[in-house]
Design a protein around this nucleic acid. Structure first.
Length: 120
DNA sequence: CAGGTGACCTTAA
DNA sequence: GTTAAGGCCACCT
């Protein structure tokens, strides 16, 4: 079985995708935080892989995921890098030198969301 | 089986 | 404020 099918069949990837869809417009979340909320602590790299291989049909807000320092983790200057910045700016997020201010824009899930989403 | 890789993270200088 | 090293885990060669 190829990589994409093994991922799309993975309940772990599904949890990651579900968390990403919860990030509100105008906010961002780190790969590590998404992993934590999905019940997969310490697996930030798995989040990046799940996003890269997610099917188009999911239309995930992948642009709201940045690294823990607030920096765009895509290859500098690449088309997809530029697109992430454009999408964030369309939502009112200031991006300067390929980075967002995490103090201002980091998503802080409320208690209700956590209670609803931990069991899956 | 043994490395190499990556849209990462934390810690320690 | 920064970088470097070690850790991390799934996948690929």
């Amino acid at each position: 079985m190829n990589t994409i099918n093994s991922l799309t069949n993975s309940s772990q990837a599904a949890k990651i995708w579900q968390i990403v869809t919860m990030i509100p417009t105008g906010h961002v979340c780190s790969y590590g935080k998404v992993a934590d909320l999905a019940g997969l602590p310490g697996r930030a790299r798995y989040v990046s892989r799940a996003l890269k291989l997610a099917p188009e049909s999911l239309t995930l807000p992948w642009h709201r995921v940045v690294n823990s320092q607030g920096k765009i983790s895509l290859p500098f200057g690449s088309p997809v890098y530029q697109q992430q910045i454009s999408r964030l700016r369309e939502e009112g997020v200031t991006v300067h030198h390929g980075r967002v201010n995490m103090t201002l824009y980091q998503w802080r899930p409320d208690i209700a969301a956590l209670v609803l989403d931990i069991p899956f």
